[in-house]
Design a protein around this nucleic acid. Structure first.
Length: 409
DNA sequence: CCCCGTTTGATTTATGGCCC
DNA sequence: GGGCCATAAATCAAACGGGG
C-alpha cells in the first residue's frame, strides 16, 4: 500500500495564491469563453487561446527600455518588441528582418506559466461547479488535484507542461527616424533602438488580421507600464481591453486558430513565423545572420521553444514522471488515485510519434519476474494506467471516468 | 547561505533524406 | 557513396527556489 506516499505529497502540496487582478482577468476570460456562441470543440480552442493571453501578460511583465526595433514601413513608423527573432510586421509580407526576440529567462517563465495553468484550471472547475481543489505539488509531482466529495477521495498527481503558442508583439507608434547623410536628412531603415520613454507610453498589441491566405496587421491599443515596479500593468491592460473592445476577442480568436493550424501544418507563410518553434526562415534571405560563434544560422524561433507539451524532451520526461508517480502511489486503498500529464495545448506535432504507441499501456508489479500473461499473476493483481489522462485545454485523452468528467470543457 | 534539482533557452552533435 | 541540408536529439547554461 502506497497511501503513505500519497499522504506525504498531499501534505507538502501548497494552496494556490491568486492575485485580485489575476482573478478578475481569468474570471472575465472564462466568462467570455462560455458566453460567445461556439461549438464545444471551438470552446476548447478558445480556452487555449485565452490561456495564451494570460501567458502573454506574464511575458509583458518585464518589458524594458532595451530590446526594441524600429520598423519604418507602411506609413506608420513603429517601435516593435517581438517574441520571435523577426520584425513581426515585415514577416507578414514575407520579408525576414532579423531582430532578437525578448523572451524571459527560462527559469522564470516556466514556473510562472505552470502556476498560471493551475490557477486557470482551478477557476474552470469552480465555474463548472466541480469541487476539485488544485494545489501546487512537490517533486516529483507538479500538480495535485483533490476531490473530497468523491468516495474514496479522488486524487490526481500530474506533470505540468505549459507554454504559449504565440506572444503578440508590443508596439509603440514612433516618430519617423532620420539621419544626416552628407548634409542631407534622409529616412532611416530598420534599426535596433531603445525606447527611452517606455514608462507611461501607450503601447499596442500588433494583431495580425486576415484570412488563411494572407494576414495584414492591426494595432490594438493596450496600455502602459507606469514604472519599474508596475509589474501587473499587462493584467490591468488586458482586463481593460476585454471590457472595452468587444471586437478584439473575435479578431484575436480568428488569428489564434489560424496560427494553430499554421503551427500544425508548418505552412511557412506569414503568421507561421510568429508561432513558437517555427524554425529557420525559408527561403533564407541573403543577409540573414549566422548564429553567434557557431556554424549554423539563426532561427526565427528554435524548435525547442515548443508549444504546450509538444517539445520532444518534455514528452519523454513527462512519460517518465507519470510512470514514476504511478509506481510510487499505486496501489492505493484510501484514494481514487490517478496520474497523467496536464498542458495547455496537446502534442500537436509529436503525439503520433511519442504518445500513440504508449497511451494505452498498463503496468503492474511482478516480483516473480516470470509472469507472461495476466493469469500467471496472483488473482486480484491490480493494473495501473501509465496515463489516466493526457490532458490539455485543447484535447483530453482519458482512461478514467472521473478524469474524463472534470476535464470536459 | 550553500547545495541541489528544476526549468527552458542556447548551442553542439547526430541522423536521415536527397541529389549527383 | 559523399556532400548538402533540415531537423531531432543531446548537452550545456543560467536563474530560481526549497531545504538543510
Amino acid at each position: 500500500m502506497r497511501d503513505h506516499w500519497i499522504d506525504q505529497i498531499i501534505e507538502k502540496s501548497q494552496e494556490l495564491v491568486v492575485d485580485e487582478i489575476e482573478y478578475d482577468v481569468i474570471t472575465k476570460l472564462i466568462d467570455i469563453a462560455y458566453t460567445i456562441p461556439t461549438t464545444i470543440a471551438n470552446r476548447r480552442l478558445t480556452l487555449a487561446a485565452f490561456f495564451d493571453l494570460l501567458a502573454n501578460a506574464e511575458y509583458y511583465r518585464t518589458v524594458s527600455h532595451i530590446g526594441w526595433f524600429y520598423c519604418p514601413v507602411d506609413d506608420v513608423p513603429l517601435l516593435v518588441y517581438p517574441y520571435t527573432n523577426v520584425c513581426p510586421r515585415c514577416v507578414l509580407e514575407n520579408n525576414f528582418v532579423f531582430h532578437k526576440a525578448n523572451k524571459p529567462k527560462s527559469g522564470v517563465i516556466g514556473s510562472k506559466t505552470s502556476r498560471l495553468l493551475a490557477v486557470f484550471l482551478q477557476m474552470l472547475f469552480s465555474k463548472k461547479g466541480y469541487s476539485v481543489e488544485v494545489r501546487k505539488g512537490v517533486e516529483p509531482v507538479d500538480m495535485v488535484l483533490l476531490d473530497q466529495t468523491q468516495t474514496p477521495t479522488a486524487v490526481m498527481f500530474a506533470e505540468i507542461k505549459a507554454a504559449p503558442l504565440v506572444t503578440l508583439p508590443l508596439t509603440f507608434i514612433s516618430q519617423r527616424f532620420t539621419e544626416d547623410e552628407n548634409g542631407v536628412v534622409v529616412d532611416t531603415g530598420h534599426r535596433i533602438t531603445d525606447h527611452a520613454g517606455l514608462y507611461g507610453s501607450n503601447l499596442s498589441l500588433l494583431l495580425p488580421v486576415g484570412s488563411d491566405n494572407h494576414f495584414n496587421w492591426e494595432l490594438i491599443p493596450f496600455g502602459s507600464k507606469k514604472d519599474v515596479h508596475d509589474e501587473l500593468w499587462a493584467y490591468r491592460s488586458l482586463l481593460n481591453l476585454l471590457e472595452s473592445n468587444p471586437e478584439f476577442v473575435s479578431k484575436y480568436l480568428a488569428f489564434w486558430q489560424s496560427a494553430l493550424t499554421s503551427y500544425t501544418q508548418k505552412t511557412q507563410s506569414d503568421i507561421f513565423w510568429l508561432t513558437n518553434a517555427c524554425g529557420q526562415p525559408f527561403p533564407r534571405p541573403e543577409d540573414w545572420p549566422q548564429r553567434a560563434g557557431a556554424l549554423g544560422y539563426e532561427s526565427v524561433s528554435d524548435s525547442k521553444t515548443s508549444v504546450g507539451m509538444d517539445r520532444t524532451d518534455d514528452l519523454k520526461k513527462a512519460t517518465y514522471q507519470s510512470l514514476k508517480i504511478s509506481a510510487e502511489g499505486n496501489p492505493s486503498v484510501r484514494y481514487h488515485y490517478r496520474v497523467g500529464i496536464i498542458s495547455n495545448i496537446h502534442a500537436v506535432r509529436h503525439h503520433d510519434d511519442y504518445l500513440t504507441a504508449i497511451q494505452d499501456i498498463v503496468s503492474t508489479r511482478d516480483e516473480s519476474a516470470l509472469a507472461k500473461t495476466a493469469v500467471d499473476l496472483p488473482p486480484e493483481t491490480p493494473f495501473f494506467n501509465l496515463f489516466d489522462g493526457i490532458v490539455a485545454l485543447t484535447q483530453t485523452i482519458a482512461r478514467d471516468e472521473w478524469v474524463k468528467d472534470i476535464f470536459d470543457f
